[in-house]
Nucleic acid binder design. Structure first.
Length: 448
RNA sequence: GCCGGGAUAGGGUAGUGGUUAUCCUGAGGGACUGUGGAUCCCUCGAGCUGGGUUCGAAUCCCGGUCCCGGCCCCA
C-alpha cells in the first residue's frame, strides 16, 4: 500500500511471465524462419531521435528527461526510429536487404486502459532496403504468419499513403491537416462539406476512402490517372524549389518525390496487392488507413483483433523513409510493430509449467543432499529445502508446490547407495540408483 | 487531456455512521522429530491516501493516488 507501481506499469508473476515467454518464442520462431535476425537498441535515446519525424501526437506522449550531464533524453516510444538510427550508424555498408527483428519495451505517457499501458512491449520487424512491392508483401505476410503462430487471426487492412498524399498536393496546404484529420477520425459528413467549401470535391477522395477491397483499388488507379494530367509543370517547379538547402533536401525530396511519381507507384501498390494474394493473405484494401507516424510514405497496414474493447489494433506498419532523415543514403524500408500486450490479452496459452523435483532430506545428510542435488541438476530441475524443515514438512511443501516427484534422501538411502523416488500423484515409491533416477525423471518429465 | 465506475488481510469477499470488521482461500506452526495436499487445533494478516463533517467514519463530503470502462490516440 505504501509503494505502488507507477501508473500504467505492470508486474508479471511467474504464471504470466511464462505465458509471455511462450508466446514470444512462438512468434520469434516464425521471424527466424523467414530469415530475420534479432537486434536490440537502448531503452533511452536522444530526445531528438523521436521529435524529428514522429508526429506531434507521439511527441506529446514521450517520457523525456535531462540526465546529469544535461542531455535531453527520452524513453523510446517506439522502435522503428531507433532501429533505423542503428542501421544508419552501423549497418549501412552491410549487404542489403537487412532483415531485422526486435522485442522491447516502449513507453508512452497515455491514459491507461484495457490493452493500453505506459510501459508496453512491441515485437517488430524491419525489412530495410528491399524493392517495394516484394518487401511490402513479405512484411505483411510475415506479420500475418507471426500472429497465426499464436493462433491470433486479425483483420488486415492495407492502404496506400502515396495516393492520399498526391491528392493532398491538389488541396491548399493550409487545408491538408484538416482533411487528414477528418479522414483519420472518419468524420465523413464534415469531410464532404469541407471539400465542397474548398472546391476539392472533384478529386474523388470521398469515394476512395469509402470503397474497400477491389473497388477501392480500381478507383485508386482511376484517380492516379486523373492526377497525372497536368502534373508536368507542377513537379518541375516544386523540384526546383527544393533543390537548394542541403539539410532540408532529404526531407523535401522525400515528400515531393513521392507525390510526383504517384501514378507510377500506384502500379507498384497494385503489385503489392497481387503478391499478397499469392501469399494467401486475407486482407482488405482500405485507403482510410492513414497512420499517425509521419514517416510512413507508401503502403501502410493495420491489423485489428476482436476481444480488446477500444484497443483493437494489434499491429501497424508500412513503408517509410527514415534513413535519409538520420543522415544516411535514401533507403526504402518496410516494417511492422505488434502490440505484444494486446496479443497476450487474447491469446490462448495454458499455463503448463512443470514444478521441479523436490529432493527431501533428513537434517543429518544435508551436505550429501547438496552434493546429490548439484549432480542431478545436470539433467533435471531439482530444489532443496532451505527452510530447515523436517522430512514431513518438506513432503508437504513439495505437495503444495504441485511437485510430481520427490526424491527422499536419508541415512538409509546413503548407506545402501540408492535413493527413494516417490511419485506424489500415485504415492508409489521405488528405490533406485542415481543413474536410474536420472533416466526415469528425464523420461517422465519430458512426456508429461 | 475529457466523461463515468471502483479501491476492505497475499487472492476473493460481507457489512453500510455506533463496542473486538464477516466469510472463503492463503501463509506459518502443531497434533505427526523418515513420508505430503485430508482432518483437527493454534497463529498471522485488511477498510488506498490526506483533509473535512460528526460525540463517533471503513461507511457521508472534498482533494490526491492507483485500477476498470469509454472518448481521443495508438500498439
Amino acid at each position: 500500500m505504501i509503494l505502488q507501481r507507477p501508473r500504467g506499469t505492470r508486474d508479471f508473476l511467474p504464471a504470466e511471465a511464462w505465458r509471455r515467454s511462450v508466446a514470444r518464442k512462438a512468434m520469434e520462431s516464425i521471424l527466424v524462419r523467414w530469415g530475420y535476425q534479432e537486434i536490440a537498441t537502448p531503452t533511452f535515446e536522444h530526445l531528438e531521435l523521436f521529435t524529428m519525424k514522429s508526429g506531434q501526437s507521439v511527441i506529446d506522449e514521450i517520457y523525456s528527461f535531462k540526465d546529469k550531464g544535461g542531455r535531453d533524453l527520452a524513453l523510446r516510444p517506439e522502435l522503428t526510429a531507433p532501429v533505423m538510427r542503428m542501421y544508419v550508424s552501423e549497418l549501412q555498408n552491410a549487404p542489403r536487404p537487412q532483415r531485422l527483428y526486435y522485442f522491447g519495451n516502449c513507453f508512452r505517457y497515455e491514459r491507461p486502459q484495457k490493452g493500453r499501458f505506459r510501459e508496453f512491449w512491441q515485437l517488430g520487424a524491419e525489412l530495410i532496403g528491399g524493392s517495394r512491392p516484394d518487401s511490402e508483401a513479405e512484411v505483411i505476410a510475415l506479420a500475418d504468419q507471426t500472429l497465426r503462430s499464436v493462433n491470433v487471426v486479425g483483420e488486415i487492412h492495407v492502404g496506400y499513403l502515396g495516393l492520399i498524399r498526391s491528392i493532398m498536393d491538389r488541396i491548399g496546404a493550409e487545408h491538408r491537416p484538416t482533411v487528414m484529420r477528418m479522414i483519420d477520425k472518419k468524420e465523413r459528413e464534415a469531410l464532404a462539406e469541407f471539400l465542397d467549401d474548398i472546391g476539392a470535391n472533384h478529386l474523388g477522395l470521398l469515394d476512395l476512402i469509402d470503397l474497400k477491397g477491389k473497388d477501392a483499388l480500381d478507383k485508386a488507379v482511376e484517380i492516379a490517372r486523373d492526377l497525372g494530367a497536368g502534373r508536368a509543370q507542377e513537379s518541375a517547379s516544386t523540384a526546383g524549389a527544393s533543390a537548394g538547402s542541403s539539410e532540408m533536401a532529404g526531407r523535401a525530396s522525400a515528400r515531393t518525390g513521392r507525390s510526383v511519381s504517384a501514378e507510377l507507384r500506384i502500379d507498384e501498390f497494385r503489385e503489392t496487392v497481387e503478391l499478397l494474394e499469392a501469399y494467401g493473405v486475407d486482407f482488405t484494401t482500405d485507403f482510410e488507413i492513414v497512420r499517425g507516424l509521419e514517416y510512413y510514405s507508401g503502403t501502410v497496414f493495420e491489423i485489428y483483433a476482436e476481444g480488446l474493447g477500444a484497443q483493437r489494433q494489434i499491429c501497424g506498419g508500412g513503408t517509410y523513409e527514415l534513413a535519409s532523415l538520420f543522415g544516411g543514403k535514401e533507403t526504402s524500408s518496410t516494417g511492422f510493430g505488434l502490440g505484444f500486450d494486446r496479443i497476450m490479452e487474447i491469446v490462448q496459452i495454458e499455463d503448463e509449467r512443470k514444478p521441479p523435483v523436490f529432493l527431501a532430506f533428513t537434517p543429518d545428510v544435508k551436505v550429501d543432499a547438496a552434493k546429490i542435488a548439484k549432480k542431478l541438476r545436470q539433467k533435471v530441475p531439482v530444489v532443496l529445502d532451505v527452510m530447515g524443515r523436517g522430512l514431513g514438512a518438506q513432503l508437504k511443501a513439495a505437495g503444495s508446490a504441485g511437485a510430481q516427484f520427490v526424491i527422499i534422501l536419508g541415512r538409509n538411502e546413503l548407506d545402501n547407495g540408492k535413493l527413494t523416488l516417490r511419485n506424489m500423484l500415485t504415492g508409489e515409491q521405488e528405490s533406485l540408483t542415481m543413474a536410474q533416477i536420472e533416466d526415469t525423471l528425464n523420461e517422465r518429465l519430458s512426456c508429461l
